[in-house]
Amino acid sequence: MSENKLHTLFILSDNERGVLARVTALFSARGYQIQNITAGEINEAQHLSCIAITTEGTAETIAQIKAQVEKIVAVRSVVNLTEAQGAVQRELMIVRVRRDAPKHDALVDTLNELDARQIAADEESTSFELTGDTRAINQYIARLNALGAVEIARSGIVGMAPVKLH
């Protein structure tokens, strides 16, 4: 048995009612964990959606999960992004800094240093967006939280399989 590790599965599916529910129901019914999940329509004309799920398991468990998900009628393909050479994965995070935050200036300096993009501002706060792979996002979060009061939201993984696997 190989070791437990995180894998992200990229699921291309028909954009039918209940697909997401079927995928998550399968995970809970078979006792698999969902670390994070993102989903959205990607081609309205072709009724296509994509779902990315991160889960933990041995290579054997992940192969079993992949085979189970592929059985779902609306699912067209499943690619393990973690194993697929050339796959890309990103997360988006949004950071809001209040003007009265004790370390306001340090926070903004850090965000600028990280190439965060300002996306909104009002009298009370400024909001930034940042993207990166999960490891980078985890580092950003650690750095920002170390500077105290800051609000953070993150998207979960959005990914794409390499061309040859489509």
């Binding site: 039918e16 009612r17 209940g18 529910a21 079927r22 129901a25 059985k71 009628v73």
Partner: peptide, 12 residues
């Protein structure tokens, strides 16, 4: 569809 999701191969 919710109740039968886990006891059908497919439902619509």
């Amino acid at each position: 569809t919710g109740i039968t999701r886990n006891c059908t191969k497919h439902n619509v």
